[in-house]
C-alpha cells in the first residue's frame, strides 16, 4: 500500500517537474524585454477600472454547496459500490433510501430556483 502511494507521490512530483523544467528552459530561451505598456493588464482596450477582484454573485456559492453535498454523498457510496457483491438486497434498499433523501434535496433546489443561472 505504502509503495503505491510512494509511486503516486513520485509520479506527481515528476509531472510537476516536467512542465516546470519546460517553462524554465523557455524562460532561458525567450527574450526578456518587459515594458510598462506590455505588462499592463487590459480591459476592452482601456486601462482596468477599479480593483480586479470584484464581488461575485451568490449563484457560484449555490453551485459550490450543491456540489459539496453531492460529492460527500458519492464518496459515501463508493465503499458500498466496492462491497456490492458481498451485500444482500436489503443493503440496496438502504442505499436507495439514502439516495432518495438527497434527491429530495435536489428537487428542493430545483423548486427554489437555485439551479437557474441568473
Amino acid at each position: 500500500m505504502l509503495q503505491e502511494w510512494l509511486y503516486l507521490a513520485i509520479f506527481l512530483a515528476i509531472s510537476l517537474f516536467i512542465p516546470a523544467a519546460a517553462i524554465g528552459a523557455a524562460a532561458l530561451l525567450s527574450p526578456k524585454k518587459p515594458s510598462t505598456l506590455k505588462n499592463s493588464i487590459y480591459e476592452c482596450g482601456i486601462e482596468t477600472v477599479g480593483p480586479a477582484r470584484i464581488q461575485f454573485k451568490a449563484q457560484y456559492y449555490l453551485y459550490a454547496i450543491l456540489f459539496l453535498i453531492f460529492d460527500v454523498e458519492t464518496v459515501f457510496l463508493f465503499p458500498f459500490a466496492v462491497a456490492y457483491n458481498q451485500l444482500l438486497f436489503f443493503a440496496v434498499i438502504e442505499v436507495i433510501l439514502f439516495v432518495f433523501v438527497l434527491a429530495g434535496g435536489l428537487a428542493y433546489a430545483w423548486r427554489r430556483g437555485a439551479l437557474e443561472w441568473s
Binding site: I23, A27, N39
Partner: peptide
C-alpha cells in the same frame, strides 16, 4: 512557443 517572451502582468 519556446522562444516567446513570458509576460507577467502588473500586480
Amino acid at each position: 512557443i519556446f522562444t516567446k517572451e513570458l509576460i507577467t502582468p502588473v500586480g
